[in-house]
Design a binder for these strands. Structure first.
Lengths: 197, 197, 197, 197
DNA sequence: AATGAATGAGGATTCATTCAT
DNA sequence: GATGAATGAATCCTCATTCAT
């Protein structure tokens, strides 16, 4: 009855350790040994479970994106009306779960990983596509044909805020981040309203 | 019969080779050997001139930032009026010189370098500070007290656009980039105008 | 309700798996895991039964030599007269049982094993001694005092044919092998006859 | 004028060290470190010159075969008449240069290498083909149409003698080896003569 | 000025082996 | 009896860096 299946537990521990380690080091140049030690096991075991360093990195990236995606979906489910939907996306993007030192620090390095590893590139592309389609859906009722362009801007803005936060030495400030991107959205809507109204 | 001083030539060759190599590899994990070979010399010579891999990377980063800074300064010198100044900054940021595959590819990695190497962090901070002050100066007459916040948004936006371009597989499109950031600026001004007027 | 004793079955499975695996790989550098998997069990069980990789290899070697020895003994028992005895040895040496891809491939590696592991060397020495004494016994009536020398030549010849077969990519051809060694024997006898008669 | 080119010297040293090390260990499972140390340099340098362990092994094998080939060619050049040619091949095969502890010990392992590494297989095939054609050329005048078959037997015999010598603990005895193979040849010729005459 | 030669340090990965269940 | 879990030890290979020439 016991014989608890440790595999998922260990894998999760490794994934989290990888994220933290990458964030702390600020680099992908972390050794499997460091990650394994942080996860409380031997490097050999890490290889046993993931087969390679790259696979571990990809799992870490997938994890971050999955959690992010889940949170966005959850927030969207509760949102009523376009404005609320935009808000939901923003809040999820800079929530305490996703906009953590760890994750933000790792994020930048996942971009670097995507330059080399096709699967990482694919994951990032999926994220961007999804974000864009969510934004467009929420924006269409508000700005009509402009939705696509506005979504692109907001997407870039989110990435830019993440990037800058990755460099800051203080803990990420979701509050301010939301305000910044929110202002861009507000401006876009206001401008659209001005034009149209 | 002066003996031409080859030092600056060699150093420049190495710096350019480093930028290209980093961009091509998409990583800082390039060997000194690769860089030196691309620059047409031996790894030993690269060390002779720069003393260490890190120093070479820093020189490359400094070079990129210097060229960028010079171009901005040049453009600003010719600009008359706040709108023209904003335009100048934008155009310089996405000019054919700075918004090249090379440079954009290296850029992302310089952010990574800044996570580890203090001097790199300092360089990046200088760049951000300068950009911000240029933006604020141009924005003040247009949006008054909002200038600081708007400048922050635009700065983040520029970085975001660079970041996304680093991942794109096609050659960077300065045109579109200018349009995207330009729209954020325009919206901010319009919104400000709406509010005030 | 006896509980069938699985031990010998498992051990035999492992031994056969080891032989096949070595032959397929063409090397002793096969992992215990590969062998165990091929035998349908876990590496840990293989260790449970044999205690070490080396012991498993030795068991495999012993098995091959035992089967070979048994076949030779069987054939000799039926043979009448010196010529028939020589023939019996040849046929057994290149029979379908012993001259299989598996076994031939493993054979070469057992020679290598014997360079390192004393017990393996001992096993090989026993085999060679036995083969020699069988050959001498059969040759004495035919070539008299020459028997020892002729036996040595035939022994070397058998090994040489095995060796060359180990490298061939096609399935071993017992027919041809017998013919080759047979010719050496025939020549020896003929020459002896020529000399004497 | 100085600037002695050390590359060939180091490479030769490594090749010799590899042969000795393999022979001493009786296995291909020698580390690059061991070989390098024996050759008086660091493992890194060994890799610098050969790129990989496998490449070093192949170079060692090629060296052995080259030396052997050269000696055979040299001996054949001086030989007059078919018998002398056969003799030359034999003497070269078991000369003090080729039939050394080192070489014989490595030889067996080259056969193993050939099971895994295609290039090694190719080298061995070249050796066998050349040996056979030399033998056939010398045998044709003596045994006519039988030359091919006889050559095959002698080839196998030579390999067999090498194989057995690899296992012996005493230094190889070229004398005896020549005698053994020589006897097979003599028998073949005598038998052929008997038949024909 | 320039480079070939050389190495120490380090890292991913593999594997035989052990052990608790 | 059987195995999943776990690891220490080892090995190949890479690379920044140094140095003699």
């Amino acid at each position: 009855m016991r014989r608890t299946n440790v595999e998922p537990i260990r894998k999760a521990a490794l994934v989290n350790a990888a994220i933290s380690e990458i964030a702390d080091a600020g680099t992908l140049e972390v050794t499997v040994g460091q990650i394994a030690r942080r996860a409380g096991m031997s490097p050999a075991l890490a290889h046993h479970y993931f087969g390679s360093k790259e696979a571990l990195f990809l799992a870490a990236m997938r994890h971050v994106l999955t959690v992010y995606g889940a949170e966005v979906r959850g927030a969207l489910a509760l949102a009523e009306g376009p404005r609320a939907r935009l808000d939901a996306i923003l809040r999820a993007s800079f929530s305490a779960t996703n906009f953590r030192r760890d994750v933000v620090g790792a994020w930048l390095n996942f971009y670097v990983l995507a330059q080399t590893v096709p699967e990482a590139r694919r994951l990032l592309a999926v994220y961007q596509r999804r974000l864009r389609s969510n934004l467009v859906a929420a924006l269409r009722p508000l700005v009509g044909a402009e939705a696509g362009h506005v979504a692109d801007r907001i997407g870039a803005m989110i990435d830019g805020v993440y990037l800058r936060e990755a460099l800051g030495q203080r803990a990420p400030d979701g509050q301010t981040a939301v305000a910044q991107v929110g202002a861009v959205i507000a401006d876009a809507l206001a401008a659209s309203g001005c034009r149209q109204g």
